[in-house]
Design a protein around this nucleic acid. Structure first.
Lengths: 214, 214
DNA sequence: GCGTATCGGTACGATGTCGTATCGATGGTG
DNA sequence: CACCATCGATACGACATCGTACCGATACGC
């Protein structure tokens, strides 16, 4: 666990102001995000992050001026889409795959969103960083999945349900813990796609019924 | 809204300041919930509530031992269903009415849930109170609406989409602010019901064709 | 009118965190 | 080898909140 830095000479080439390797920096980011998930944004302390990463507060404050800026940096380091790269060639299958992907990150991302949920309403930078970290990537990926489905003619462009599907997936992942007391797992989200999303699009296990009059 | 107070000689019509009347108590509860919505649970201070209600910290601490207990009491005072009493005789119309009701409380309840979202994971009493205040009443009311629809034969019992509808309504209300940056209003939720919920149940504007112009 | 209990106001100690300053140690660079 | 920036550790002041204690004032019951 204690990574003795095996820094290759190639990374030293670029002169860094800091002696911290990118890997070490990521350790700080992982630690603060984990503390946020566990304790909430307000309760996170720089001292706690320093302790858990065996560095000192000085180091954190040297690199990032304040706690909010530190957290923002940590969030930005996590920008990635959990649903990227999904492209099975079938809209229904893409949506099922998206459900699997969303389920995989359900607990982690939901905790983070929950823990930052209010702080975000008070700090615009934080809000932006959180959006870029775990909201927009998923929404964008889902929109892309839908766009391709329309492009392939699987669903009529402008189908009224299309507009709501990203928010539906997102909302179900976040709502389930509140409603049922447990995180949205793969089985739950897959059943949801089958039971609600695909039927609304007239897709899915049932043979699509060609509308007689348009 | 604190524009009811007229400093100076106020009319003694119906308000007594001597002992804590239920109305006075409700003022405290309203104040703390509003502060939670605005500032977050952690940032709420007993001092602030005391100031905004023109009482003293002593009074608050006399009635409720600690801040968490005070907040729990405030939440319990708010137990009510925003969707109670909906019974139009038609499942589709009931769901539309539920959408309207959910929209009406969308901002208020979402702010509260957002602000308490994490505190709830650390305090079981708080979690229970919040559930009873704004989660279970709505979920229960929706289930009841669905149950009656099934009872009337509008939807087949055990229809797979039924299970997800309460969480969907709940989730859409909470997800929209995060996804679109604005609260779920009536138009949004009504379109959602038409576009996603009713079609998944094979209900809605398909059977009765409204006169389409164009 | 008097006693009592609660009211509102405020001062207080305890606690915890932020962010800064200071210190010795280390490792890279000319 | 000498220099110097950064590292980790720690002490520190500033600040805010919790929850308590004490105060005078007021309203109700008798």
């Amino acid at each position: 666990m204690t990574s003795q830095d095996a820094d290759g000479p190639e990374s030293v080439a670029a002169s860094r102001r800091s002696k911290l390797t990118p890997e070490r920096e990521q350790e700080f980011f992982d630690a603060v995000l984990e503390q946020i998930r566990e304790c909430g944004y307000e309760a996170v302390t720089m001292e706690g992050v320093a302790t858990s990463t065996r560095c000192s507060k000085s180091t954190l404050y040297r690199q990032w001026k304040t706690k909010p800026q530190f957290v923002v940096a940590a969030l930005r380091s996590r920008r990635q889409s959990r649903l990227a790269g999904i492209d099975t060639g079938s809209l229904a299958e893409d949506l099922r795959e998206a459900a699997r992907g969303a389920a995989r990150w359900s607990m982690t991302d939901t905790k983070l969103l929950q823990a930052l949920g209010h702080a975000v309403t008070q700090d615009a930078d934080l809000a932006g960083a959180l959006r870029e970290a775990i909201v927009e990537p998923e929404i964008t990926a889902l929109r892309e999945i839908l766009r391709r489905g329309v492009e392939r003619g699987e669903v009529e462009a402008g189908h009224p349900a299309l507009e709501y599907i990203p928010a539906q997936m997102f909302g179900m992942v976040r709502a389930r813990p509140v409603v049922d007391g447990e995180y949205a797992d793969e089985a739950y989200l897959l059943r949801f796609v089958e039971a609600a999303v695909l039927p609304a699009l007239r897709l899915g296990p049932e043979r699509p019924r060609p509308p007689s009059a348009g």
